[in-house]
């Protein structure tokens, strides 16, 4: 990497409407700023986080248009509709082209982005999306466990559950990384559940989002007779470092 390249770091407060964005020119920044970066890197500074640049995607996919409430010019699509593997696999998966085209054969076909999408479909080529949320290879994380626990067993809103780790996607176009996804950050929840009742995560005050979807409790009351008892979040090393 070119040491003098201008690296853009964006500092965002997720819980407030105001976003602070700072542009730092790495080649020339002062000692104070260096110290700031040092502090940022070694602390979980909540609610504000250091974030990687949202990578440029081959198509500028608008999460907001898809997930916003209908009264807010959105389509209120459930996250699990597109990321349908999240509830049954370790990875959430990127929706298949066939799924996109299921709607976009007819919907918004005049838009440039949809025409781009259609070209991929016609050529039979997958879209080379850039990975936004990545964990090191020595971390085993499973979406399935988390989604099953919070959504299907506790009946929390899907948007809120995904939002714990992914932020409020209805405020984004292409996906951005809004949580550090570091070990200390994961443990904020995982330690809490060692002693206290299995409940919503305590840091939820920080991570709360204004979910627009309905809690599954309303539509799908938990079948307590058959549901597996809720497990406390594990904090043994091997649970994530297999």
């Amino acid at each position: 990497m070119d040491a003098h390249a201008s690296v853009r770091v964006r500092i965002v407060s997720d819980s407030s409407a105001s976003r602070v964005t700072a542009y730092l020119n790495v080649g020339r920044f002062s000692t104070d700023l260096r110290l700031l970066i040092l502090v940022l890197c070694f602390t979980s500074w909540s609610p504000q986080q250091v974030l990687a640049e949202a990578p440029a995607q081959p198509i500028e996919f608008p999460h907001d248009v898809h997930t916003n409430a209908e009264d807010n010019a959105g389509n209120a699509i459930n996250c699990l509709y597109c990321h349908s593997y999240a509830r049954r696999s370790s990875v959430a998966g990127i929706p298949t082209l066939a799924k996109c085209m299921g709607c976009h054969r007819y919907v918004a076909t005049d838009k440039e982005r949809i025409q781009q999408l259609t070209r991929y479909w016609e050529q039979g080529k997958p879209i080379p999306w850039k990975k936004v949320h990545d964990l090191p290879d020595f971390v085993y994380f499973t979406h399935e466990r988390h989604v099953q626990h919070f959504v299907f067993q506790q009946g929390q809103s899907v948007q809120q559950v995904c939002g714990y780790c992914h932020g409020d996607v209805k405020t984004m176009t292409v996906a951005e990384k809004r949580r550090p996804l570091t070990m200390g950050w994961c443990l904020k929840c995982h330690q809490q559940f060692q002693d206290n009742p299995v409940d919503v995560p305590r840091p939820v005050a920080d991570w709360h989002i204004n979910a627009t979807d309905q809690s599954l409790k309303a539509v799908m009351p938990a079948d307590t007779a058959h549901a597996e008892p809720l497990r406390k979040a594990p904090s043994d090393c091997w649970e994530c470092h297999k």
Binding site: P55, A56, T96, P126, W129, K130, K131
Partner: peptide
Amino acid sequence: EGRETVMSYID
């Protein structure tokens, strides 16, 4: 992040 590509299935 941003350097690796995630390919989705077509169908």
